[in-house]
């Protein structure tokens, strides 16, 4: 069976198997993605990030339900961390997405970060491309519970939603220069708790102190009680407005260029490493490592040598 064609025909099992394939990586995965590339570029890709337990999954489910009512189809990728010790993972985001069950206009996939540190997995961008090709209008990506460094989502999404919660207020100055900078929308979730208004004020103050945004979009600060579906319509509308803004201001092309450059760099790194490993025997590899450890060879020279081998046409 042709996996790419089955996926385009709307076969959900084929989509699921294609997702496994791109997660595993390798030449077959790349040829699948090549075959589907022309069918991508339609979906609105939205990243949702924030601290562990901030309500990312609950908000993603509520946004998905909103867009379903508006007649749009929704794909979801939910990333959770892999244990660095066992390589295992517990992926629990679906627990909060049960209300979407049984809807053929929704497809949810959990993904382990598999050692990647940026808040998403190596293959998250590829997975988004598959959902895009499979004709989902909106693709929501939930990152792992993020602190400050997990900002890679901004390079993978058109619109990035950052979730804060009341009480984060006290240390708000110290937090997340990085994570606030990537926000196209700020949501103070759990607004049923004390201090939400204060957190909103602090976030707005921080935004007004910051340099005027380079792309001319000032992130709105919105409140939500995701658990009860409150504030969802305003968030969804703001996300749509952000996409319109990107398109009308010509920034969309800029974002697409950033996304393409980011992806190309990742693919290049991965392919180069794979070619080198294919042409260099494990014993040769070990020997180079031993030389580096013995300080008879520096790692930069070793890398140059390997790259020449890996990229030369004659090698084999």
């Amino acid at each position: 069976m042709d996996l790419a064609q089955a996926l385009l025909d709307g076969n959900r099992r084929a989509l699921a198997q294609a997702l496994t394939l791109v997660e595993t990586g390798g030449p077959q995965a790349r040829s699948l993605l090549s075959a589907l590339f022309a069918q991508t570029g339609r979906a609105h890709i939205i990243g949702v990030t924030g601290a562990p337990g901030a309500g990312k999954s609950t908000l993603v489910a509520a946004l998905a339900a909103y867009w379903r009512r508006a007649g749009r189809t929704v794909g979801i990728i939910a990333v959770d961390p892999t244990s660095p010790f066992t390589r295992g993972a517990i992926l629990g985001d679906r627990i909060r997405m049960q209300t979407l069950s049984g809807d053929p206009g929704v497809f949810i996939r959990s993904m382990a970060s598999r050692g990647r540190l940026g808040g998403i997995a190596r293959a998250t961008g590829d997975a988004v491309a598959l959902l895009d090709a499979a004709n989902f209008d909106v693709v929501l990506v939930e990152t792992v519970g993020a602190g400050q460094g997990e900002v890679e989502i901004a390079a993978a999404a058109h619109t990035t939603i950052v979730i804060e919660t009341p009480g984060a207020g006290d240390d708000i100055q110290a937090i997340k220069a990085g994570i606030l900078e990537i926000a196209d929308l700020l949501v103070v979730n759990k607004a049923d708790r004390d201090g939400a208004e204060q957190t909103v004020r602090q976030l707005r103050a921080m935004l007004s102190l910051a340099d005027p945004p380079a792309d001319g979009w000032t992130p709105p600060v919105l409140t939500a009680v995701a658990m009860r579906g409150e504030g969802i319509e305003a968030i969804a509308t703001a996300a749509e407005r952000h996409l319109d803004y990107l398109r009308n201001s010509g920034r969309f092309t800029g974002r697409e260029q950033e996304r393409a450059a980011h992806e190309l760099r990742l693919i290049l790194q991965e392919t180069a490493l794979e070619r080198v490993r294919a042409r260099v025997s494990p014993s040769e590899w070990e020997a180079l490592i031993a030389q580096i450890v013995a300080r008879t060879l520096d790692p930069y020279a070793a890398a140059d040598h390997l790259l020449e081998r890996g990229l030369s046409h004659s090698g084999e």
Binding site: L91, G92, R94, Q98, G102
Partner: peptide
């Protein structure tokens, strides 16, 4: 192993759908 946990009170339909999507 990578373990997807979907919580309590699942119907057989919900379980099969999740298993299919998660491959």
């Amino acid at each position: 192993m990578e373990v997807i946990y979907t919580g309590i009170q699942q119907t057989p339909q919900m379980i099969v759908e999740a298993a299919l999507q998660e491959d």
